[in-house]
């Protein structure tokens, strides 16, 4: 099945979600090519195993509808049947635009897919990850939005052989300003071996310094629930869950998190889960390997002292 992967460049690199989809395409020996979207100069995003066309957009424009027009032409000219993208911001916009052009609904939240006898079945995650929903797609063009961390990332050797194409504006492009790039320091959520996440059970935003101290000691990345992101305790980029990031670290430490399904879906595949919560009935304990019924504000300072 001739396939196209729509990837993205983030901080000058292929995003981990993009690399995961490429790994899966290689595993399935799909006949695939890649286009990546970004808005800055970039280097090592090419690879000998596939072609990569870098669609470079003007960073002062929101230009994705124009970008979708280009991709549409590419799909038609190359008889592409399957289009795969990460369910990130850019991916969702582009796949949605293409779905209108090709009159076919995309499958969102895909965690796996199979091709046999040229038929494609996709599995998507529903119910906050509690159930798997399997569908067979019967349209000529199949559009899949893949949830991050669905596929294991394999070794991919990157080089600088790729083609760059500038995205032009169209009537639906709009000017953007005050572009803010969140500073990234310390271990990143997606690739850290240990993640420590905070919830409303940290009681006050000033107590997050306890979590920061613990993260420093364990060389861990910091995450949070939507409740505390909405409350402004942490930037959105740290949110773990259905509408945030999906993480799969070796150890996940949930501090004062109730464990709503929308949070669980972003972390329950972590290898070892430790939860600290003063409510012994908290749902987070149902997926924990080690549950501590106790006060975060007493347990975490002692951890910090003794580590």
């Amino acid at each position: 099945m001739k396939s196209l992967i729509i990837g993205e460049v983030n901080n000058n690199e292929l995003s981990s979600g993009t690399l995961e989809i490429i790994s899966k395409a290689k595993e399935l020996s799909l006949d695939f090519s890649v286009i990546t979207i970004g808005n800055s100069e970039t280097k090592n995003i090419g690879c000998d195993d596939f072609t990569n066309t870098y669609f470079k957009s003007n960073s002062n424009k929101l230009n994705l509808s124009s970008c979708a027009n280009e991709i549409k032409t590419l799909i038609e000219e190359n008889n592409i049947e399957l289009v795969l993208s990460n369910s990130s911001y850019i991916g969702r916009d582009l796949i949605a635009f293409l779905s209108v052009d090709f009159k076919t609904s995309p499958v969102s939240n895909v965690t796996n897919f199979e091709i046999s006898n040229n038929e494609l079945t996709a599995i998507n995650s529903i119910n906050g990850g509690e159930s798997e929903y399997k569908v067979k797609i019967n349209s000529d063009i199949k559009l899949l939005l893949i949830r991050p961390k669905s596929f294991e990332q394999t070794e991919i050797t990157l080089n600088d052989s790729f083609e760059t194409k500038e995205i032009q504006e169209n009537e639906n492009s709009i000017d953007v300003f005050d572009i803010h790039i969140e500073e990234k320091s310390g271990p990143q959520l997606e690739d850290s071996k240990i993640v420590i996440s905070a919830g409303r059970g940290m009681v006050e935003s000033s107590n997050l310094k306890l979590v920061e101290e613990l993260a420093n000691k364990l060389n861990a990345a910091i995450g949070g629930t939507r409740a505390i992101v909405d409350a402004g305790w942490m930037p959105y980029s740290n949110q773990v869950g259905q509408t945030g990031k999906t993480v799969k670290p070796d150890v996940y430490i949930a501090c004062g998190i109730s464990g709503a399904t929308q949070h669980q879906v972003g972390m329950k595949d972590s290898k070892y889960i430790i939860a600290i919560n003063k409510d012994e009935e908290a749902p987070i304990f149902q997926i924990s390997d080690l549950g501590i019924v106790g006060d975060t504000l007493s347990v975490i300072p002692k951890l910090n002292e003794n580590l």
Binding site: Q286, S288, D289, L290, G291, V293
Partner: peptide, 13 residues
């Protein structure tokens, strides 16, 4: 249904 629940340890602090 793929909901998982673990028989983890639960300890009161």
């Amino acid at each position: 249904d793929i909901s998982t629940s673990k028989q983890g340890e639960k300890i009161t602090d």
